[in-house]
């Protein structure tokens, strides 16, 4: 069931939510978290769709926030949806005028109390997410450095402003790679001398994989630019030969190890909903991400 409210207030939105829940038969959906999506008019459809897909794995209340014109009258418009293929409850807020700078005052009363809050910026995100008025509400703050104009630079900003609870979808994109690389080293491959990561230009995930490898292995890791798509190859030079995991087409990867047959493995690029679902699986700080950012910042300085 869907309700639209124009020129409204947070408390009216709240009662609309309660009314909608009741009319849907007192639907008692188990909400395990609040997901606040900071988006804009262009991206809202995709972002809300991804959020509701991720919500199928993690029942949540989704609050979408769109900042409209900063000039003109202060106003709040809202759409409330309960049931209707929406997992749990969904609210879409549009803010106008000076309200744009005080969105937290609208979002706070709508949050399900004493339940974790996750803030997600699918596009542009504040320089230091944890310092943002809304970011402060979240115990988990999800950015996407791949959406910024200069992703390499953006990662350094994120590193400088890092607070436990920050995370980035470019980091989630590395999981499948990292998991295969870790599995590769489950059996001895000889001692690793150096490593290389190849990816299309301006790919923050490649920078993160490189920093992660450098931090974990304590060897020098170089990055190369390739045709893409995304990350295309990670290789280790070891004293017994070269270990290569390469993926030219964004779907199929080949793993070669010295003295072993080449093996084929599916390594598809995941969509935003899948990445978001991975992010929502854990709500405690991702320390490994924090350390990787620190390694990255350290290497850029040095």
């Amino acid at each position: 069931m869907r309700t639209e409210l124009t020129d409204t207030t947070a408390s009216a939105v709240r009662s609309a939510l309660a009314r909608a829940s009741q009319q849907m038969g007192g639907l008692t959906t188990s909400v395990v978290l609040n997901l606040v999506v900071m988006t804009d008019e262009n991206d809202q459809y995709d972002a809300m769709k991804a959020a509701s897909q991720a919500g199928r794995e993690h029942p949540c209340q989704i609050i979408g926030v769109i900042a409209r014109k900063r000039t003109g009258q202060r106003r709040l418009d809202a759409e409330v949806a309960v049931g209707d293929n929406a997992p749990g409850r969904m609210v879409l807020l549009r803010t106008f005028g000076e309200l744009i700078d005080h969105v937290d005052s609208v979002v706070t009363p709508l949050l399900v109390p004493d339940t974790p809050v996750v803030i997600w910026w699918p596009g542009k995100s504040p320089e230091a997410p944890a310092a943002d008025a809304l970011g402060r509400l979240g115990q988990r703050r999800i950015t996407d450095s791949a959406c910024s104009e200069v992703p390499g630079q953006r990662l350094l900003e994120l590193a400088a402003g890092y607070r436990p609870g920050d995370t980035d979808l470019a980091w989630a994109r590395t999981t499948t790679w990292r998991s295969l690389l870790a599995a590769t080293l489950d059996r001895p491959v000889g001692s690793i001398i150096e490593a290389t990561v190849a990816a299309e230009a301006d790919n923050p995930s490649a920078d993160l994989i490189a920093a992660w490898l450098a931090g974990r292995l304590g060897v020098s890791v170089s990055t190369e630019v390739s045709e893409g798509p995304g990350v295309t190859e990670v290789s280790f030079l070891t004293d017994s030969g070269k270990v290569v995991l390469s993926r030219a087409d964004g779907r199929n990867a080949t793993l070669s190890k010295p003295g072993e047959p080449d093996r084929f493995v599916a390594l598809h690029r995941r969509d935003i909903a899948e990445l978001l679902a991975e992010e929502l699986r854990r709500l405690d700080p991702d320390e490994v991400y924090g350390e990787t950012l620190a390694t990255l910042a350290g290497s850029r300085e040095g």
Binding site: R178, S179, L180, A182, L185, D186, P188, L217, R282
Partner: peptide
Amino acid sequence: MDNPLRDPRDRRIPRVAEPS
């Protein structure tokens, strides 16, 4: 020797079976 890429705090990396 322990695998340097595995870290119990790194909860994103799943347990993957050995080649078998």
